[in-house]
């Protein structure tokens, strides 16, 4: 996740110190991806090293204030005008689990699918409840919608997997031969 770009974008709105950055990040994203303060300061140190932010003294309570540099502004502009790359799909445990389940004898793929569908549906109900109670915070609402659509996509994919498995079972009633049987005569 791009903590670096997110913090830079927040700094573009004006100089801030670490705790403020964390609070604003979590307010906009509804604490969906919690940041610890250590992470914020490590990132700020790295941004400073790369010349994208600079320390600008401290406030009365000793918090170091950071401000964005010209190079930092360019970085933010580039972030907003470039699509998020999709070339490296994140490792998807569910897809991996199903890919293995369909090839292993003795695994009840149907119940793997149904258990997941129920669990994802329960999560989707929770997100929807949050939406209902959530009021009008636009930024957090959009993040929730993203979670809603992702959960929905997962359920649709599970429905699709189930339909494909059923069709495969109808076409080939026998259990597929395990891969580790090389000496079977052809």
């Amino acid at each position: 996740m791009s903590v670096k770009q997110a913090l830079l974008a927040l700094l573009e709105q004006g100089p801030r110190y670490g705790y403020q950055l964390r609070a604003e990040f979590e307010q906009r994203t509804g604490s969906t991806w919690p940041l610890n303060v250590g992470q914020v300061y490590t990132t700020l140190t790295r941004l400073e090293r790369d010349g994208l932010v600079e320390a600008d003294g401290a406030d009365g309570e000793g918090h170091v204030i950071y401000r964005v540099t010209a190079a930092g502004r360019e970085e933010v502009a580039a972030w907003f005008t470039t699509p998020v790359p999709r070339t490296q799909p994140p490792r998807d445990e569910l897809a991996i689990k199903l890919a293995l389940a369909v090839t292993m004898p003795g695994v009840d793929v149907g119940s793997v699918i149904q258990q997941q569908r129920s669990a994802t549906m329960a999560a989707l109900q929770d997100y929807t409840r949050l939406k209902r109670d959530g009021g009008n915070d636009l930024a957090w609402g959009l993040v929730l919608d993203s979670l809603v659509f992702a959960a929905e996509a997962e359920i649709r994919w599970l429905d699709h997997c189930e339909a494909r498995l059923r069709r495969a079972a109808l076409e080939k009633p026998a259990v597929p031969a395990p891969v580790d049987a090389p000496e079977v005569a052809r």
Binding site: Q125, R132, A151
Partner: peptide, 12 residues
């Protein structure tokens, strides 16, 4: 699913 999620219970 997105619509079913508005319900208190979902029956499959």
């Amino acid at each position: 699913a997105r619509h079913a999620a508005w319900a208190d219970r979902v029956v499959f």
